[in-house]
Amino acid sequence: MISGAHVILYSQDAEADRAFLRDVLGLPGVDAGGGWLIFKLPPAEVAVHPTDGPPQHEFFLMCDDLDTQLDEFRAQGVEITRPVSEQRWGKLTAIRLPSGAELPLYEPLHPIAHSL
């Protein structure tokens, strides 16, 4: 039986990105040993999209109110890396992690599955 999902973010500054997840995003976590933090995520869902290119995987955080969330991030000094774009499926943007990587965020306009 599948009991959960484990997402891995590869980082060039894992310690700083872990601190960001803990301190800025407020994700609770556990120490898996030796300071290796694993964080609890909000409810999740998975989609499978067709591609003509090589298979790839993406990780997005979902927000109920993207504009309010972005205001909170700006107040904390978080860099917003993309202007909000209106897609048919939701409002999309991204923030900068301390390592320099982008973390996409979106406010879904589609029915959500994570509460089923």
Rank of each mutant, 00 (worst) to 15 (best):
L25C: 09
L25A: 10
G29Y: 12
P83M: 13
S99E: 11
H110A: 13
Q56R: 10
E58F: 05
V24P: 01
D67A: 15
P54L: 11
E79N: 07
A14K: 04
P104N: 10
L105N: 05
P42L: 06
D65Q: 13
G100V: 11
P28Q: 05
A44K: 00
I8A: 08
V7G: 00
C63H: 12
P43H: 11
R22D: 05
P98M: 04
P55I: 08
L105K: 02
Y106R: 08
P55Q: 05
T51H: 02
Q56E: 14
D17P: 05
E86K: 14
L61R: 05
I8R: 03
A75M: 07
P54T: 05
A5N: 01
H114F: 11
I95A: 07
G33A: 08
R82L: 15
R22Q: 12
R18V: 01
R74T: 12
W89P: 04
D65G: 11
A5G: 08
E45S: 06
V30F: 12
D13F: 08
A101K: 08
L116Q: 05
P83V: 07
W89S: 11
R88T: 14
Q87M: 15
T81E: 13
G53A: 14
D13C: 05
S3Y: 01
R88P: 14
F60L: 15
I2H: 04
A75W: 01
D31H: 10
P50A: 08
T68E: 15
A47S: 04
P108M: 09
E107N: 11
S3K: 03
F59R: 01
A32K: 06
F60W: 14
A19G: 10
M62N: 11
K91G: 05
S115W: 04
F60I: 09
L109G: 15
P98K: 02
L66H: 10
P55F: 04
P28K: 04
P83S: 13
H114W: 12
P98N: 02
V78T: 08
T81A: 12
R74G: 03
T81C: 14
D23W: 00
E58N: 10
V7W: 00
E79L: 13
P104Q: 10
E72G: 14
E79W: 01
V78Y: 03
F60T: 14
A32W: 02
G90C: 09
L61E: 09
A101L: 13
Q69H: 09
P54H: 10
G4A: 11
E58K: 01
T51C: 07
F20C: 07
P98G: 03
E58M: 06
L9G: 00
E107G: 09
R22H: 14
G34E: 06
V30P: 00
G26M: 08
I95T: 04
P50F: 01
L66M: 11
G26F: 03
P98D: 02
V48N: 07
L70F: 03
E107Q: 15
V78D: 08
P111R: 15
L70A: 12
D71Q: 14
R96M: 07
R82P: 01
L97R: 03
R18P: 00
K40R: 07
D65P: 09
Y106N: 14
A19R: 15
F73S: 12
G90F: 10
M1H: 09
L37A: 11
T68W: 02
F39K: 01
V46D: 02
R18S: 15
D71S: 13
G26N: 12
R22A: 15
R74A: 14
P111N: 13
S115V: 03
L103V: 08
S99Q: 07
I38Y: 02
